[in-house]
Design a protein around this nucleic acid. Sequence first.
DNA 1: AGAAATAATACACACGTGTGAATTTGGGTT
DNA 2: AACCCAAATTCACACGTGTGTATTATTTCT
Lengths: 343, 343
Amino acid sequence: MSVTIKDIAKAVGVSHSTVSRALNKSSLVNERTLARIRQMAGEMGYRPNVIAQGLKRKGTKTIALVVPDIANPYFITVAIGVQEKMRAFGYHMILANTNRNLETESEEIKLLCHRMIDGLVICPLSEASVPCLGYLREHEVPFVIVSRDVKGIATPVVLPDDFYGAYLATAHLADLGHTRIAHIAGPEKASVTVDRIAGYKAALSERGLSTDGQLVTMGPLDMSGGYEGARTFLERDDPPTAIFAANDLIAIGVLGYARERGIRIPEDIALVGFDDIDVARYLEVPLTTVAQPAREIGNRAGELLYEALHSPSETPLHRVIMRPTLVIRESSGAARREVGPRN
Amino acid sequence: MSVTIKDIAKAVGVSHSTVSRALNKSSLVNERTLARIRQMAGEMGYRPNVIAQGLKRKGTKTIALVVPDIANPYFITVAIGVQEKMRAFGYHMILANTNRNLETESEEIKLLCHRMIDGLVICPLSEASVPCLGYLREHEVPFVIVSRDVKGIATPVVLPDDFYGAYLATAHLADLGHTRIAHIAGPEKASVTVDRIAGYKAALSERGLSTDGQLVTMGPLDMSGGYEGARTFLERDDPPTAIFAANDLIAIGVLGYARERGIRIPEDIALVGFDDIDVARYLEVPLTTVAQPAREIGNRAGELLYEALHSPSETPLHRVIMRPTLVIRESSGAARREVGPRN
DNA sequence: AGAAATAATACACACGTGTGAATTTGGGTT
DNA sequence: AACCCAAATTCACACGTGTGTATTATTTCT
């Protein structure tokens, strides 16, 4: 087993409380014994048991990141952002997956609550997650919300401007001359879905284009969602000429469907994604996409959580909105405006 | 705060030890009070504090996964595999990143040791990680090694047959008529590098091809490694006609370099990767690659760790070798032998 | 030098839970 | 009714650490 302060106490010949003090607020302990204790601690390779400390200090230097789908590169990038920040602060990060399932989300949050995590960063599934978040509140676990907007919960939030991003993507397609622009959206009720649909429709109506509900489908934010969405649209008699996918995985699903059916992109169908995941530029057809700074979102979320963990009670309710940018590659059929391997 | 057994004890009017027993081995407590306690616990929404339990029980229902690079989709897939298994067993998973840095790895392991994790799954950097693993041993933290082979450490291991996989890849290229086949390998001294180079050379010499050291470079297992490796080879006067990349990220880096320089794949250079990450089939040039069952590797590692956590002392030293398969797509210039969106 | 002030250390309890041993309660037997 | 045994419950301590308070050792002042 590990050496404890008791072991050190025995070795030096003092009580464990003196050792404890020597290793923390040194003020109350004699210069000489302090030195002896510190040295002995070093020699014996003592490291405090963070968990035991946690019992007293009410904090285990552990936070959790709860996301709907860890297989999604976007969330992985956010995770990297959170992780690198929290690591710098001396925290460890538990990675939890809700699998896009409300029950799993609820259960996971409860489990996490009772393992004395100090706080968490969460991407909630939808408004329906509010009770879970309330549970966190009751148990006084600080949390920061990322990438989703949830009404009625007063807590820091870091998210992209989904409306604006969707507007950019749709406007880009419209400006290329497309008039029948479809949108493969995410799961119903999630803010990411609502806001991106709103941005999409705003761009359309601004240009006098129909915002026909027929041109929007909803489904999971993964490849299967894109594959199914593409089938829905492209099997119709009057298929759209352009698709705005709610994220890059959906766009990849569209690519897969298109390849199967011999549909060319961008010649037959123009395609725009969202997120700009790492591989977007290396795809079969380099993907025009709305880039959101996932890593920075993670960073900021980490910082805000750290603040919340260290402010006694009332911390300003930050609401960080990150502005996305449009990265034009080939899938939209426009002239390439970005080249190079990385950056 | 959360309700504790003391709260329940007060509410029911018994001592906290009775409550504790009622919620665990019910045998010693009266039928009626047991029922009352259980009900009250339910009403009050009691959940045991896993951390406090950990102090006594020596176990926090937490494990860690330590990998060199969380940005690598391969490790993410392994992580998903470990996570889904451990979650089923009621464990949480801390995700730690060593950033391919020996010091970070060492520091991280020490930190983790002292937060009472029950065990860990680790992909060590190289033989140089042995001291760290010894540290785990001393502190009696069970661990399972994945995706790397380390000599002199008696612990369960789950890894792909790197030799065989590399052999498959190289043989495939050779059988397509290539005689100058280069290999962009991983970091020096890692088993993954050594074994794949060995498999590569075995395939070459079996066919009477030169195993000229000039055709092997080593570097990081990421896109930058591929980009640099490609430059090294393709700037030469006598460039190879085929490249076997030690993983898919490297292959993507090669794709990036090739695109920049107008080099066509597979016409000018045939390319084979390793791992078969999710996006490999959707790349600019669908990637011929050696598929390893990353998720299953994670699953098996999780199972072995669970065994190790629950066997008093001597558990058989499993050594699970997963056999990889070659997935032929377009980047190697061979006839396509696999199609479809997923599976 | 003796009392008072101060410095240094030990004691005891706490955090939330688990558990062996002691104690109380209840039921049955004589 | 006295007794015994078993069942049920409480006591007391443990895990590793932190901290208020009591205690002891040392210095300072008169």
